[in-house]
C-alpha cells in the first residue's frame, strides 16, 4: 500500500437503521450505549423525541430513521452518541440504531452536487455502497432548515 493510499483511509462507524446501513465519521462518535429512559417534555422540534441522561449530561435523542428509511425504528438496540457541531460549539446527540455498529477503515468518495445535503460522502464496504451521514444536515439546530430527506432505498446499491 502506498503512503498516499494509507493517508486517505479514514475510520467510520457503520450503523444499522432497519435494513440499511449508514456511516458516520468515527471522529464524530463519542460512544455506543444501551437504550435508557427517554425523558420527554413539551417542545416543538419534531425531530427530537426527548433527552437521555448520560455521564451527567443531558443528551437529546434524534431518531433519524424516519428521514433516512421512511419509518421510525421499531426496536432500538443502542444509542450512538455523536458529536454535532453548531458553529464553533459541539454538543452530543443520541441516535437510536437498530443493530450492532462496526468500526471500519475505508476511503470516502466525496458527494456529488446531486446528493442530498445529509450525504457527506460514500463508502464502498462489503459489496455495499454506504452513505456517510452529515449530522449537521440531518439533526435540527437553531437557524437551520432541515430539508426533507426522501428515503432512498436504491442508494445503497449506487454504482
Amino acid at each position: 500500500m502506498t503512503l498516499i493510499a494509507e493517508t486517505e483511509l479514514q475510520s467510520f462507524v457503520l450503523l444499522r437503521l432497519g435494513d440499511r446501513r449508514f456511516a458516520v465519521a468515527a471522529t464524530q462518535i463519542s460512544e455506543l450505549v444501551a437504550p435508557s429512559r427517554v425523558f420527554r417534555f413539551p417542545h416543538r422540534t419534531a425531530e427530537v423525541e426527548g433527552v437521555i441522561l448520560r455521564r451527567g449530561r443531558i443528551v437529546p435523542v434524534c431518531d433519524v430513521a424516519e428521514k433516512l428509511v421512511g419509518k421510525p425504528l421499531k426496536s432500538r438496540r443502542f444509542y450512538l452518541i455523536a458529536q454535532r457541531n453548531y458553529g464553533a460549539q459541539t454538543e452530543w446527540v443520541a441516535l437510536p440504531v437498530s443493530g450492532d455498529c462496526e468500526l471500519i477503515n475505508a476511503e470516502m468518495t466525496l458527494p456529488s452536487d446531486s446528493d442530498a445535503p445529509h450525504v457527506s460522502g460514500w463508502l464502498s464496504h462489503g459489496g455495499d455502497v454506504i452513505e456517510v451521514l452529515n449530522l449537521a444536515a440531518l439533526t435540527p439546530g437553531p437557524g437551520e432548515l432541515l430539508a426533507p430527506v426522501a428515503p432512498l432505498a436504491q442508494q445503497e446499491a449506487r454504482p
Binding site: 427530537v48 437529546p60 454538543e91 437551520e144
Partner: peptide, 12 residues
C-alpha cells in the same frame, strides 16, 4: 444545563 441546541423552535 442549557437547552440542547437541537431544540430549535418555540421551546427556546
Amino acid at each position: 444545563q442549557a437547552l440542547p441546541r437541537s431544540f430549535c423552535h418555540e421551546e427556546r
